[in-house]
Amino acid sequence: MKLFIKYMVSLRCKMMVKEELHKLGIHPMTVDLGMVELAEDLSEMQLLRLKTNLKKSGLELLDDKKSIIIEKIKNIIVEMIHYSDELPKVNYSDYISEHLGYDYTYLANIFSEVKGITIQQFIILHKIEKVKELLIYDELNLTEISYKMHYSSVAHLSNQFKKVTGLTPTFYKNLKNKRKKNLENI
């Protein structure tokens, strides 16, 4: 039996789900972002208790097909951008379509209809979040970040960053440095 869980986007969420399953005496075969695979089916009572316990933790058990597909799309994007060492060399649309086994147009239409933004906009938002993280860590310069995140140029990254955040990457990085200096002066 497979269960799909909304808002399960981090390793901490995975640990929380495992813990909730173990409390109910359920031993999962696998626990991945957004999905749990069980060897046996759950009783109605177990399912209801799991749903209730997950909700207390800010997670939600999904049961309709569209919601499940959207969560799968979101989890693929989050894992691709935030948890893999390198972004795929193929188009994101091909990557997502290949992983889910659906036509990309179908996936894009469902995603836009329910989320109110396109898959591409969702990817851009997550790429910018990753860029912010990389700027704060201060291990890579802007050229290296743009290469790592598959931007065609530093200018392209900077323009997209400013569109999303209202700030330039350099200004954002300097804000972090100013905050650090202010904290040191306290």
Rank of each mutant, 00 (worst) to 15 (best):
K2V: 15
L3Q: 01
L3W: 00
F4M: 01
I5H: 04
I5P: 03
I5D: 05
K6L: 08
Y7N: 15
S10R: 11
C13Y: 06
M16C: 10
V17F: 06
V17N: 03
L21R: 09
H22L: 15
H22G: 08
L24K: 11
L24E: 07
I26N: 13
I26W: 12
I26Q: 13
H27T: 13
M29W: 06
L33K: 00
L33M: 15
G34H: 02
V36N: 06
A39N: 04
A39P: 10
M45W: 07
K51L: 13
K51T: 15
K51R: 15
K51A: 14
K55G: 01
K56C: 05
G58P: 12
L61T: 00
D64W: 00
K66E: 15
S67F: 06
I68L: 00
I68W: 02
I70D: 05
K72C: 06
K72G: 05
N75Q: 07
I77V: 15
I81L: 09
I81T: 05
Y83E: 04
S84F: 12
S84Q: 13
D85C: 02
E86I: 08
E86G: 01
P88M: 03
P88A: 03
K89R: 12
N91Y: 11
E98L: 06
E98W: 01
E98D: 12
L100I: 08
G101E: 10
Y104M: 02
Y106C: 00
F111I: 02
F111M: 03
K115W: 05
K115A: 03
T118E: 00
T118I: 00
Q120M: 05
F122W: 00
F122S: 03
K127Q: 06
K127H: 01
V131F: 09
E133S: 12
E133K: 14
L134C: 13
L134I: 10
L135E: 04
I136E: 11
I136P: 05
D138P: 03
D138Y: 05
I145R: 09
S146M: 03
S146L: 02
Y151A: 08
S153R: 14
V154F: 08
A155W: 03
H156T: 15
Q160L: 10
F161S: 01
K162W: 07
T165V: 04
T168W: 07
P169Y: 08
P169T: 13
P169G: 11
Y172C: 07
K173T: 02
N174I: 05
N177G: 06
K180M: 08
N182G: 11
N182E: 13
L183P: 07
E184N: 12
E184W: 04
E184P: 04
N185A: 10
